[in-house]
Amino acid sequence: MSTDFTPIFLFLIIAVGTGLSMLVMSAVLGPRKATRVKQMPYESGMDPIGDARQRFDVRFYLVAIVFLLFDVELLYLYPWAVGQWSADAAIPAAAGAAPLIVGIPAVFRMLVFWEIMVFVAILTAGFAYVWKKGVFEWR
């Protein structure tokens, strides 16, 4: 067996061991007293009494969509930021091969920078729009 996979196996053993130890410790140390209140269903901070098809205020959905919008934005900004900082880094290759250059090539750095600035400007305009519409004001 090769030693190349030893760190992976160690990680898996530690991960499974941690999960199993949490299960065992919660069963041993956890509270066991079942009361009527503890057995009652809990639904998003509200008592689940009444019709299950009640109407929700549209502000819940607006806040969720705005959160997703600005959360997904980071998925696009993070690779750019990492590429900018590691633009001149080289990963050593095997013997006889050229090193792998990572990051954004110098020729495209300004183009990529201005594309990201346009992306951030569009997000800022969207942020200003939802702010003006009052999405962030909880009445």
Rank of each mutant, 00 (worst) to 15 (best):
S2K: 09
T3G: 07
D4R: 15
D4Q: 08
T6D: 10
T6H: 06
P7Q: 11
P7F: 11
I8C: 12
I8Q: 15
F9L: 13
L10P: 00
L10W: 08
F11L: 14
F11E: 06
F11T: 04
A15R: 03
A15V: 00
V16F: 11
V16C: 03
V16D: 00
T18N: 03
G19M: 03
G19T: 03
L20Q: 10
S21L: 10
S21G: 06
S21V: 08
M22D: 05
L23H: 01
L23M: 10
V24F: 04
V24C: 03
S26G: 04
S26R: 13
S26N: 14
A27S: 11
V28M: 09
V28G: 02
V28D: 03
G30I: 07
G30C: 06
P31Q: 12
R32K: 15
A34S: 09
T35L: 02
R36Q: 13
R36H: 12
K38T: 10
K38A: 11
P41W: 08
Y42V: 02
S44V: 05
G45I: 00
M46C: 10
D47T: 06
D47N: 15
P48L: 07
I49E: 12
I49S: 08
D51N: 14
R55I: 11
F56M: 10
D57E: 14
V58W: 14
V58Q: 12
V58D: 12
R59P: 00
F60L: 09
F60W: 09
F60K: 10
Y61D: 05
L62V: 00
V63I: 14
V63S: 09
V63L: 15
A64H: 07
V66Y: 02
V66C: 06
F67N: 06
F67R: 06
L68A: 13
L68I: 10
L68E: 00
F70L: 03
D71A: 15
E73V: 11
L74I: 07
Y76R: 01
L77N: 03
W80N: 06
G83M: 04
G83T: 05
G83P: 02
Q84K: 04
Q84N: 07
Q84M: 11
W85R: 11
A87G: 02
A87P: 00
D88T: 07
D88G: 14
I91G: 01
I91W: 05
I91D: 05
P92A: 14
A94F: 09
G96W: 09
G96K: 02
A97W: 03
A98Y: 01
A98L: 11
P99S: 09
P99T: 08
V102H: 04
V102W: 06
V102C: 05
G103I: 00
G103Y: 04
I104G: 00
A106C: 01
A106L: 11
V107N: 08
V107R: 13
F108A: 12
R109M: 05
R109D: 02
M110N: 15
L111K: 10
V112Y: 08
W114R: 12
W114F: 15
E115D: 12
E115Y: 13
E115V: 14
F119M: 02
A121C: 09
A121F: 13
I122E: 05
I122F: 04
L123K: 01
L123H: 13
T124K: 04
A125H: 07
A125V: 15
A125P: 04
G126T: 13
G126A: 14
G126P: 00
G126C: 11
G126R: 03
A128K: 06
Y129A: 13
W131Y: 15
G134S: 12
E137G: 03
E137K: 14
E137R: 14
W138L: 07
R139V: 09
